[in-house]
């Protein structure tokens, strides 16, 4: 029984990690008032770039760095469209999703003449933390995890500190609640939102990178498979708070783990595996359809900010 629990916990941690990182990315963007439905596309481009850069250099850390840069590059048009050109943020985000998927699948075909990248040999490896990894049940899952897991935890804590303890974070949240008020207090709304969306791109792409060079070892068009949307759901479910989003992302990770492990543990005797596989997505729909959390949304989210308007 302990084995089963350890196993589920380990899989949960494994699949939560990309969700946590992408959700933190979404957190910055949405807290500043810009809807980021582009998380999916940003994860995709991150996963693609990480795989390609790692294949090219043989160094997965360079793969992570390249992924973050690619995320920033693809978040930029979303920022420009929704902040500078005042486009609809949802439409712009959807466009980024298509653009990212299209670009990466096309480039994979172009580079490797195949539907997927070759297998990445130099992936990030599990890093045991000496001593702690010997703790029964939680040791092997929490303290013998991929580096991305540790990064995700650190990013969550840092996100909390930055958003809730520093002037930068307070201004960012003010911009997402009442941009005009922030502006009258001397805060540069446009610069704040740009910064937030670009951070969002870097973090979401980092999450995506973990899928292709840590958990997995290749990139194809199904590598991300809707996890960006799940991360968005986790963000909403977690009420736009770093720790809320961390918890919610772990919960979604648990749902994925349950679906994956279902077969092994004979859960499929009772429920068909198709239903188990649906679980994370059903939860996502419930969250995105607004059954939870809507009341907590940043007040100015999705609204174009006009300066010098009457």
């Amino acid at each position: 029984m302990l084995d089963v629990m350890a196993n589920i916990l380990q899989t949960t941690v494994l699949y939560s990690t990309p969700l946590v990182l992408a959700a933190m990315g979404g957190l910055f963007s949405e807290r500043s008032g810009v809807v980021n439905i582009a998380l999916e596309g940003l994860m995709t481009i991150g996963a693609f770039t990480a795989a390609v850069a790692t294949l090219a250099t043989g160094n997965p850390w360079l793969g992570l760095a390249a992924a973050m840069l690619s995320g920033v590059a693809f978040a930029w048009p979303h920022a420009a469209a929704s902040i500078r050109f005042k486009a609809d943020q949802v439409v712009s985000g959807v466009a980024i999703n298509f653009l990212a998927l299209g670009t990466s699948v096309y480039l994979v075909k172009h580079l490797y003449d195949s539907g997927q990248t070759p297998t990445v040999q130099e992936t990030l490896k599990r890093m045991p933390i000496p001593g702690l990894d010997q703790i029964p049940v939680i040791g092997p899952s929490l303290f013998n995890a991929f580096p991305t897991t540790y990064i995700a935890l650190v990013v969550s804590i840092l996100s909390y500190i930055v958003l809730y303890r520093t002037p930068f974070g307070m201004r960012l949240r003010a911009v997402g609640e009442h941009p005009r008020a922030a502006e009258t207090m001397g805060v540069n709304v446009v610069r704040m939102r740009y910064t937030a969306v670009l951070i969002s791109g870097a973090l979401a792409a980092l999450g995506g990178a973990g899928l292709s060079i840590a958990i997995g070892s290749e990139f194809n068009q199904n590598t991300v498979a809707g996890q960006g949307f799940i991360a968005l759901a986790a963000l909403i479910f977690g009420k736009w708070h770093p720790f809320g989003a961390l918890g919610a992302a772990s919960f979604f990770g648990f749902a994925v783990a349950l679906a994956l492990m279902g077969q092994f543990f004979g859960l499929t005797q009772y429920v068909s595996s198709e239903v188990l596989n649906m679980l994370p997505y059903v939860l996502t729909i419930l969250a995105l359809a607004g059954f939870v959390g809507r009341a907590e949304a940043p007040a100015a989210i999705g609204k174009v900010y006009e300066t010098d308007s009457r």
């Binding site: 520093t166 201004r171 922030a182």
Partner: peptide
């Protein structure tokens, strides 16, 4: 807001 007193980077 916009003129926050800080110590060691935090408000």
């Amino acid at each position: 807001l916009g003129a926050e007193p800080t110590s060691r980077g935090c408000i």
